[in-house]
Each structure stands twice: as structure tokens, then as C-alpha cells.
């Protein structure tokens, strides 16, 4: 068997691909968030940043790469999730977890699907629709216009909470799947994973909350 085929066919291989793409996507989220923070600097800073991005010749290539990472992560993640449901067809009458809060791990499939729904809405709003739909010809105004809609903002914040739950298990889990487990390192990775998950979520959620309460 060739390495690619082996990875595709083995449980551990599939998980390692999900883990690697997942970590890469966390990196993407961090850069995305850094860009978002320009909104706090005002319309001009944010709009010129958006324009700068749009004029990159390699942008379509980067977008395609990103799409590929998302697709692989989602499709293989779901595959693992579905296989796992099949492996335990009959559940226990008494379910006693040994963990105080086991749900982040249990809900990976559900929080992942919710994030996918969010992605579709998000890309539709901010890539395939734009300022021409809104009141002014400015990306900043278009974002604020959407965020000032409480329904949209609640949906956005809700999805970010679900993302925090996803990443609070996902980040540390990715390291274990890739074989990183060390008595000194692992407790740090576990705490850092949760911290990164919370920081990303708080960062992303801060914008709609800001827009709703005062901004622009």
C-alpha cells in the first residue's frame, strides 16, 4: 500500500489528517482575527486592509487552499464521527462518565456541523454579498450593518461559543493524535489549547457585541 492509501484507510491515519488540517485552520483563524481587530481602528483602516487583501494576485490560490483544508477536515472528520456511531450501536442504560464535563469531546461532530453552517452563512454574507447590498459602499459599513441585526449577531456569537467548545477539545486532541504526549508538555498543551479556544472565541465575538452595544 502506498503511504497515501494507508493514511486514508487506517483509523489513525484519518485522524492525523483531521488533526493536521485542524491545527492549520486554527492558524488561519488567528490571522483572520488579527484582521478583524482593525475594525476597532475604524472604517478607514479596515476598508483599506480589505482592499489590500482583494488586490493580492495570489488571493484566489490562498482561498482555494483554505477551501481544501476545510473540506478535508470536514469530510474526514464526519467520516470518523459516523464510523464511531456505528461502532457502538446499542447504548448503555446507565451512562456514567468519569469526566466532570465530557461533552466537548462527545460533541465534536455536532459542534463541527454547526461551525459548517456558520461558514456557509458567513461566506455567503461577506464574500458573495457585499456593500452593494447595504447602505454604504464600504466593507466596514456592510459588516456593521449585519452585526447591528441582533438575530445575526446572536447567531454569530452562538456559533463562536460552539467553536470554543470544538477547539477546547480539538487542539489538545490534535497533539495526542500526532503522537505528542509527554508528562511535562501535555498538561501545558491541554491548558494552552483551552486558552487559545477561549481567546479566539472571545476575540471573534467581541466585534458583534461591540457593534450591537455602541460601535460605528
Amino acid at each position: 500500500m502506498k503511504p497515501c492509501e494507508r493514511i486514508r484507510k487506517t483509523s489513525v491515519g484519518k485522524k492525523q489528517v483531521v488533526a493536521l488540517t485542524g491545527l492549520a485552520l486554527v492558524g488561519f483563524l488567528a490571522t483572520h482575527l488579527a484582521g478583524n481587530f482593525l475594525m476597532f481602528k475604524g472604517a478607514q483602516a479596515f476598508d483599506s486592509y480589505a482592499e489590500f487583501l482583494e488586490h493580492q494576485t495570489l488571493l484566489p490560490l490562498a482561498e482555494l487552499g483554505l477551501l481544501a483544508f476545510f473540506l478535508v477536515h470536514i469530510v474526514w472528520g464526519l467520516k470518523v464521527f459516523i464510523e464511531n456511531r456505528r461502532a457502538r450501536p446499542q447504548r448503555y442504560a446507565v451512562e456514567a462518565s468519569t469526566d466532570a464535563w465530557p461533552y466537548a469531546a462527545r460533541w465534536m461532530g455536532y459542534s463541527g456541523v454547526l461551525t459548517l453552517v456558520f461558514l456557509v452563512v458567513h461566506v455567503a454574507t461577506f464574500k458573495f454579498m457585499g456593500p452593494e447590498e447595504g447602505p454604504e459602499d464600504s466593507i466596514f459599513a456592510w459588516v456593521m450593518f449585519n452585526f447591528k441585526n441582533p438575530l445575526y449577531s446572536f447567531f454569530y456569537v452562538g456559533c463562536m461559543v460552539s467553536l470554543a467548545i470544538h477547539l477546547s477539545h480539538g487542539i489538545k486532541s490534535a497533539f495526542q493524535t500526532l503522537g505528542v504526549n509527554d508528562p511535562r508538555l501535555t498538561p501545558f498543551i491541554e491548558r494552552a489549547g483551552v486558552a487559545v479556544a477561549l481567546a479566539l472565541t472571545a476575540g471573534f465575538a467581541s466585534l458583534p457585541i461591540w457593534a450591537l452595544t455602541k460601535g460605528g
Binding site: 461502532a87 465530557p102 469531546a105 486532541s173
Partner: peptide, 11 residues
């Protein structure tokens, strides 16, 4: 054999 994939729940 039909065992599931480990998702690092540590149960």
C-alpha cells in the same frame, strides 16, 4: 473488526 476511532476522550 469494527472498533471505532479513538477521539481522545480518555474514558
Amino acid at each position: 473488526s469494527g472498533f471505532g476511532n479513538c477521539t481522545n476522550e480518555y474514558e
